[in-house]
Design a protein around this nucleic acid. Sequence first.
DNA 1: AGTCGTTATAAAAATAATTTATAATGGGCC
DNA 2: GGCCCATTATAAATTATTTTTATAACGACT
Lengths: 294, 294
Amino acid sequence: MNTKDLAYFDRLIKLKNFSQVAAEFGVTQPTITTAIKRLETEFATKLFLRDRVHHDLTVTASGEQLAVHATEILRRLDLAHQEINRLTQRRTVLGLPPIIENHYFPRVAAHLQAQGMLENIETIDGGSIWLRNALRDGQVDLALLGSTEPLAYQTLVAEEFDRKPFNIFVSARHPLAKRKRIYFSELRHEKFVLFNNSFIHDTAFNQLARRNHFRPDVVFRARDTHIIMNLVAENVGVTYLTGLVDQRRSDVVRLDLLDDEQPEFISSIAYRTSHVLTPTQAQVLAVLRGTLEE
Amino acid sequence: MNTKDLAYFDRLIKLKNFSQVAAEFGVTQPTITTAIKRLETEFATKLFLRDRVHHDLTVTASGEQLAVHATEILRRLDLAHQEINRLTQRRTVLGLPPIIENHYFPRVAAHLQAQGMLENIETIDGGSIWLRNALRDGQVDLALLGSTEPLAYQTLVAEEFDRKPFNIFVSARHPLAKRKRIYFSELRHEKFVLFNNSFIHDTAFNQLARRNHFRPDVVFRARDTHIIMNLVAENVGVTYLTGLVDQRRSDVVRLDLLDDEQPEFISSIAYRTSHVLTPTQAQVLAVLRGTLEE
DNA sequence: AGTCGTTATAAAAATAATTTATAATGGGCC
DNA sequence: GGCCCATTATAAATTATTTTTATAACGACT
């Protein structure tokens, strides 16, 4: 069976139009007709109900079932291509969320450099949620990820190495700046400057807001700690960030949260279950473990 | 790309011999040579290091990586075939471990029959561990499974519906028959009649034995409750079984376990994440939920 | 030196996929 | 009602791909 047929099928499931699928793949329409017929013969079933009359194409139960597997098979094939490409180019892509990068990576980098392994690594930045997808889709080999729950996906191997609370940061000029500790509910009428939703900060923040039964006023979302901190310093709003954020600045004040049940920022090392580690990658992993899990 | 090439590749990874793979598939040897070369071109990499001289074939890193995906792709293809076959034959295979079948199924069957759905179902018996594999491999569509931990596999959807302790059963003639409760450690010198290791009873039993630091004397393993109970009645040994086992027999006595931390028998409804439920299967599932989860 | 068990290569044969050309069918439009 | 449009299907011709056949190359073993 040719995977090209599965690719045609996969697109047809979405487009529901033989001619359009043909156009997308740069082939003629009968090609799609025969490809689907081949699959129907192979699986001894109808995959689509064609009502040419009403220009209507519906997917049968068998079609739905095959679609699930076709998508996954094509995804795997793509994954294999990406992984093998990096393998032959001796590249290792390490995904890092900015906060984890700022806080942990300098130490890791020092160790990697000491072993002459830093040049084999290419880092890529992004929120933990975005990185988890990049890891799943094969753009990234290894990643450090933040999460609010221990990472439990069968497709990922995840090793937790740290766990830190979240804090509130306010401008030194803000009335709350004198406080050391605060309940989240006291922030009901504050303006917030936050990370965007590809960061787990957003997940954690929403959990807390829901528990406290209010809808916070988010005035700005950014992808960068410095931008957020600058806005907080200017008193544009307050923010909710991990204590990991190293702020040696005098114009921003950190407050602890007093809430009983609050999300934690869990840091883990992660890679795909299906990924075969090269000796270099295994070494990088060992350095990560050694440095981070002590 | 042809999946046949992946099948050849998958076998070659295991057999490490082109001619043998060719023989297995009933094709000539150059077919395998060219198939592998096709894959090597497609992925722009060497998959094997051929040392024809020393009759030695080693798999490269790229080869190892592709092997992981090839195996999974072939598995999915096989799964799709099985699922679609049953779909077109309107068959639904429900896996039942004997104990769960005895205890819960009569009620479920009554409801299914009332809705005229019993004839669409084919049941298959087996231990929970065996059934979990059968479910994964597509021989079974739906299953009731026993486990000692909540089932958390990304490939399975699992819904817990009951949780029961394990008990000790002894012959009425046994000295312990007068007791109501007992510590597992008191059984150190007993002989045991148990399920074989395709049942989670075995997993649970081993946990308890390890915690109590002794290696129990297992005199017989069976796949059937009645056989076990008959042997217990004859005082061949004692057994460790869920309280679910409905024994209205006077020649066997049930004892509660007093241990603090002991495994529980968790019953769940399970099916593959990738499986698309037919309307009938969805109905069966609804009946199972309705009857079991109340 | 001859045979066996390996994998590779090239040409021929066999299979399979795609295109080209055309049919069939109903909707919409004048 | 006749015409055009957008559909998918079919058959024959063409093109592409896979497999076989036949043979080479190479070292181990006898």
